[in-house]
Design a protein around this nucleic acid. Sequence first.
DNA 1: TTGAAAGCGCTAACAA
DNA 2: TTGTTAGCGCTTTCAA
Lengths: 346, 346
Amino acid sequence: MPPSVADMADRRRGPQRTTPTIYDVAAAAGVAASTVSRAFSRPGRVNAETAARIRETAERLGYRANPLARALPTGRTSMLAMVVSDVTNPFYFEIIRGAEVAAAEQDYTLLVADVHEDASVERKALERALPLVEGVVLGTTRMSDSAVRVIARERPTVVLNRVVAGIPSVVTDNAKGMRQAVEHLGGLGHRTLAYAAGPEASWADGVRWQAMREAAHALEMRVHRTGPFPPTLAGGALAAGAVLATGATAVVAYNDLVAIGLLRRLTHEGVRVPQDLSVVGFDDIFGAELCTPTLTTVAAPLTALGRYAVRTLLEDAGTRTPSTVRPARLPARLVERESTAPPPTP
Amino acid sequence: MPPSVADMADRRRGPQRTTPTIYDVAAAAGVAASTVSRAFSRPGRVNAETAARIRETAERLGYRANPLARALPTGRTSMLAMVVSDVTNPFYFEIIRGAEVAAAEQDYTLLVADVHEDASVERKALERALPLVEGVVLGTTRMSDSAVRVIARERPTVVLNRVVAGIPSVVTDNAKGMRQAVEHLGGLGHRTLAYAAGPEASWADGVRWQAMREAAHALEMRVHRTGPFPPTLAGGALAAGAVLATGATAVVAYNDLVAIGLLRRLTHEGVRVPQDLSVVGFDDIFGAELCTPTLTTVAAPLTALGRYAVRTLLEDAGTRTPSTVRPARLPARLVERESTAPPPTP
DNA sequence: TTGAAAGCGCTAACAA
DNA sequence: TTGTTAGCGCTTTCAA
């Protein structure tokens, strides 16, 4: 004889302390457990009055659906994972928040995994998180394209700040942003520019440099590439000498960290920014307006990036077919602050 | 007749794509499913050879345990939640990382919930996360003590940056840190100090001000309290006037954000830091060495805070009885940078 | 519209 | 040491 409803309800103990289950609600409301289940998971498939009664009993008993139990048969965990290369990188703060908010909007919980710039940690984190989540956002992943595809085969995946053929990706419109920066500099009267490059492996670096060359060319400006430098404050400090050697009157850095490092080293060496040299950063991270002078920079749509990635993910997860074949390019915009000015008049 | 092992294995499909289960492994290895389960969850309770064979078969089949299925009967989700009031606040970056690393060490996944400084969002986030996790770290929660206790009754809980009686908590040793700051200032020759206060509701603010008063008193220095000010850059800017009005030659701010805001406003108004006025911050967030001058500040043990909180949680969760009745106070230390100097000689 | 019953994949008595 | 069996709490056919 199968255990009765009362039996099952009675026998419950376990870790969740004695939380009421659908069986308790069912018994109290005088209906079957399946009806309780339906009342919550697909209202409308159940008589309005019955539903109301169930709802009320559930409320009274303090019933809370167990997400684990729901997820087991359905696979619907209501969780998404976002892996970031480094949580302490200010670049991610707004991205994470944007993603988190978009997830919450659709009643999803975002699991943030920090991989400390370590590919093996990234693998482990994914291995652990993947079976738990309905989709993954890969923020500046260190994995190879093919490794990304392996992940994408297992769960809906969106790649951030990088383009992987065949995988939905969302990136900043680096080209347009860079163009604005170059035009701004041109408008101020600069004719010779320098670029302080980031890591060669960086997808964004390639795009940014390429765009800078084209924009400068179009405006008949000269442009020198220096670097590569590490994408850090220290890297920026390193860049100072090389940049000065080019004779440029303005420099665009790979990102804000490099720009700020550069700024500080220059100031330290007696080079006045922006009077002697204009500096432009990229991303507009927290910190870009903390430095002195405050940094003119191409603001990446950080919050939007996170939000958009999650929304894309949720859409794809629904339809099961990646909609965004071509990468989404979100607009960047130049934020003019104090680190740019007309070139010195010799 | 109950379905045979083969039946069950066959009937599988579902969301996880056709991932092998213990039943597949059991069938292939010629043992019972429970033996496979044991082979993984408690090695040693199974014959070494059998275990080896099972392991090998599992490997060959590409078997991966389903964490959801494991969690359902046991409650062991291997997940911890950390609630932070604002992910974009640089104060949390290192804390999150410390927590994440400590969790990973013990094979736990950390779920970070951002509550945007909103108590109702905090409630919702907890409601959603609580049934999923084995424990919770509350980072600067906005909830009342009693609300915290309600949470703690449901899951092992550790409170960060605040002391809630009866609940394990881990905080910065604000008093000792403040003492170092005051002594540093005293050593430079300052006799009159100002404090730019943070939110009145802030537990840390109370402790810091109290410690400052005592330390100043012990060293026979005078100290003026100004504020409260919002704990932001804007709040710091606001504080400038009030601080100057006190006639102090040095100011300690509630936190780094206030200190930096103060710094910038002062500089803007022509007050030279540190020549005219010394400024000390609190926490040593990212940004404290981006500003000009770089900020002398009491460094909170950010990473350690996160790490310690998680370790405490994991211990408590194991023993089921909160070990840390008295709050853990982690040491702070003064970081001397450019924003402090001897007072002006009038 | 509702109920009965069979699982989701794993764990944990209890027997053998 | 291993197998049998009964669930964990929920969803979902399939009948009624």
